[in-house]
Write a protein that binds this DNA or RNA. Structure first.
Lengths: 339, 339
DNA sequence: CTGTTAGCGCGTTCAG
DNA sequence: CTGAACGCGCTAACAG
């Protein structure tokens, strides 16, 4: 930069100002500076600028399960929204582990991100969040809700899950199992509540043995499904708590030679882009993932603009997508004839 | 930091050194400093450190199609590998557009990333790469190969695609269409070469009308498939150039009421995690995506360590996964009975 | 409209 | 084993 200044015959101050348009400059000097910049191949050092200005124009995203297509849509949306606002995205995977999450969040904060998007793991309330509060980093929570004074965005879980279960009951099922995610996550707890609510309202007795811990993960869900099938009275229908577990459940059913929906019905939380193209065509709840990501960024940006604004919690609506895996079309053949 | 120094009764120099373990210090002072750090809640400013040291411990990843599950696995692997090495990941989507790609790469470089991973778009050779060279940013190319003096990692494309086509020919197909990606991408070109090679070797005449431009994208592939079906002599088999296009092709077939593999065979480049669980069970080429990401990071790190090391180009092996969508099991019923 | 100067928070020579 | 002083590259008063 000093080089540019010398070459343009002006001071570094002027260079800085023409670069940032921070204050008026004569056409002549502006051109001179521009020319010098071009000739030297000068490129600004964002770090130095951030250090001087106290603001990095960057956002951190701490999330788990990057390989989960659901979260990837979120990441894509966040990257896009952040980019539009002139911010760069720093990415970290929490691994759903509070210890690791804290390390990630810490790293991000030490890199002076202007704000942080976090999908808090179970345990965040005792580790990450206290730290974040004392560090005074602007945060918005993503996907999972927590009982804290922070901006939060997520989806409705209870009612949609109830809808899924109701539907199975309508078709005639009474032994309905559910593969649930990590206990303690608001998403998990709310979905379980929705499940129970639907049972209650239909007068179907709740059987705890039908609630299988799938740990939000594929392989664990697979094992859970096998256990369910080993029950004296195995379920005639399953509801999956998220997309990862859906794969695991199906793998287990596959290993047992059971067909969906003929031998067992399956409905799931989380849609797949291709879900209507393959058999069994899954009946699911679809979350507005893209909107989730972009809303979260908007909330964060607005908080950066006005740190005193009261916190806001937003529930996005999820939609019921009716296909064939619930087995209610009558013709199970229809499901198999897909594509 | 000054605060910590005062509280510990030492100089900032000492604080810096005990933090970094840069030089010996008496147990007493070390403890004093540590105590002061704990009490002040001091957290290091990575930016200032980077500015002083000239090195950010951060890597940039510029890639397109974040919503593509294939690339997401890569992102996950890169994040993991980078994290292990103590680096933070800065993420940017190139949108497969050289202009935007340049902006992304520039932003990343101005943020002083130590190195950059890039999946170059078509046109990068004229825009991004010259800039990167003059900016002297360490780079490793990802997924797509280019004729430049840079480290590169990607998969084998030609032979695997040929394998796919050979297989279709073995089953008796001769009118084999292919949905191809963006022309100019090495992945596209190599896959097309593989396609032609297999035809040649089998003595099947090459018909250019069967080569449909799917633009690496879902919707474009869908339209391309419709066009193929409108041909006087429509194909009896299709090979998809990547996973995005596979979805598009299937959507078109679905819209026509055509079943795979009964009415038309389909094989594809890129596997899906769930591909063996749904019908039609896709016969595909699987890329080692995780390995791709981690190898790329390793290459980049080794380059940072030794900038003079000769460039290396690595081809990872892709594997042929035989399932039912090729229609060669004889019993097409088997395909539909899945799950 | 422009230049001088003092930091931003830290690492790192040099002297002790 | 420890401290003082300078500089990383840039912005922002404060003068002029």
């Amino acid at each position: 930069m000093a080089e540019v200044a010398k070459l343009a015959g002006v001071s570094v101050t002027t260079v800085s100002h023409v670069i940032n348009g921070t204050r008026p400059a004569s056409d002549a000097t502006r051109r001179a500076v521009q020319a010098a910049i071009d000739r030297t191949g000068y490129r600004p050092n964002t770090l130095a600028r951030a250090l001087a200005r106290g603001g990095t124009q960057s956002l951190g995203l701490a999330i788990s399960g990057l390989s989960n297509p659901y979260f990837m849509d979120v990441v894509a949306a966040v990257e896009d929204a952040a980019g539009r606002a002139g911010h760069t995205l720093l990415l970290g995977d929490t691994r759903e582990d509070p210890e690791h999450e804290l390390r990630i969040v810490r790293t991000l904060a030490e890199r002076q991100v202007d704000g942080l998007l976090l999908a808090p793991s179970v345990g965040a309330l005792e580790t990450t969040l206290p730290w974040l509060e004392s560090a005074e980093v602007p945060v918005v929570l993503l996907d999972r809700f927590l009982d804290v004074e922070l901006d939060q965005v997520g989806c409705d879980n209870e009612q949609p899950t109830a809808r899924l279960v109701e539907h199975l009951i309508d078709v005639g099922h009474t032994r309905i199992a559910m593969a649930i995610g990590i206990p303690g996550l608001s998403t998990t707890d709310e979905r379980v509540r929705g499940y129970r609510m639907a049972l209650d309202q239909a007068g179907v007795p709740f059987d705890p043995t039908l609630l299988a811990d799938g740990g939000s993960q594929r392989d664990q869900a697979r094992e859970a499904m096998h256990a369910l099938l080993d029950l004296d009275q195995p379920p005639t229908a399953v509801v999956s708590g998220n997309n990862f577990m859906t794969i695991g459940l199906l793998r287990a059913l596959n290993e047992r030679g059971l067909r969906v929906p003929d031998d067992i019905a399956l409905v799931a939380f989380d849609d797949f882009e291709w879900a209507d193209l393959f058999a069994p065509r899954l009946t699911v709840i679809r979350q507005p993932t893209t909107e989730l990501g972009s809303r979260a960024v908007e909330l964060l940006l607005s908080r950066l603009e006005d740190p005193t604004r009261p916190v806001r919690t937003e529930r996005l609506e999820a939609t019921f997508v009716h296909r064939d895996s619930c087995g209610c079309t009558g013709s199970s053949r229809a499901a198999h004839a897909a594509v």
